[in-house]
């Protein structure tokens, strides 16, 4: 921080309202979160319900099987997908904006960050545990494919939406 001749400190650095950063992150997250929710409802939820109904919930990491197969409410899927999308968007938007004003570098950073997130999510969701019976294995494989598709929607959507929102809303 430079000193003036009188000895006072003048502030430097990014002079922009934090509010615009929040606005850009939320604007990017809203449409992608809705698409993510639709992808989960249409692709993954039927397989998850089948797995729970077949008492294979231990394959999902549950310590104890549910007494009754849970059916996640639609509002839960909507709120959860919006929360995850907004959280990711806030983190990636902050990282991108910290590198400088919106431009080619922030676009590439957003794409790289979303790629890393997709790799982590794919690794986490991709491991199929050994299950008894070909039908259970097939069901689990279908669930993993559905999860990969939904996560692709999430990451690709954010990679496109974050640079656009930053250019429009962040000075």
């Amino acid at each position: 921080m430079p000193l003036t001749p009188s000895g006072t400190v003048t502030p430097t650095g990014p002079q922009f309202p934090v509010r615009s950063l929040f606005a850009a992150a939320v604007a990017a997250a809203l449409p992608v979160g809705l698409l993510y929710a639709v992808a989960i409802i249409t692709l993954a939820s039927p397989h998850l319900n089948s797995i729970e109904a077949l008492e294979l919930s231990y394959a999902l990491g549950h310590a104890t099987p549910h007494a009754t197969p849970p059916t996640t409410p639609l509002w839960g899927i909507l709120v959860g997908s919006l929360a995850i999308t907004t959280g990711l968007s806030l983190v990636i938007t902050s990282l991108c904006r910290a590198l400088g004003p919106p431009g080619r570098r922030t676009t590439l950073t957003a794409a790289a960050a979303c790629g890393v997130v997709f790799a982590v999510l794919s690794f986490r969701a991709g491991a199929v545990p050994p299950l008894p019976g070909a039908a259970a294995m097939d069901l689990m494989t279908r669930l993993r494919s559905a999860a990969l598709g939904a996560n692709l929607v999430l990451c690709f959507g954010l990679a496109v939406a974050i640079p656009v929102a930053l250019r429009r809303l962040s000075p």
């Binding site: 993954a44 990491g61 996640t72 899927i77 959860g80 999510l121 986490r124 969701a125 999860a147 996560n151």
Partner: peptide, 16 residues
């Protein structure tokens, strides 16, 4: 967890 069950499993977050 129960409210966000499907989203958690699709995103590969840890369960109970």
């Amino acid at each position: 967890h129960d409210a966000l069950h499907d989203v958690r499993h699709v995103a590969g977050f840890p369960c109970h």
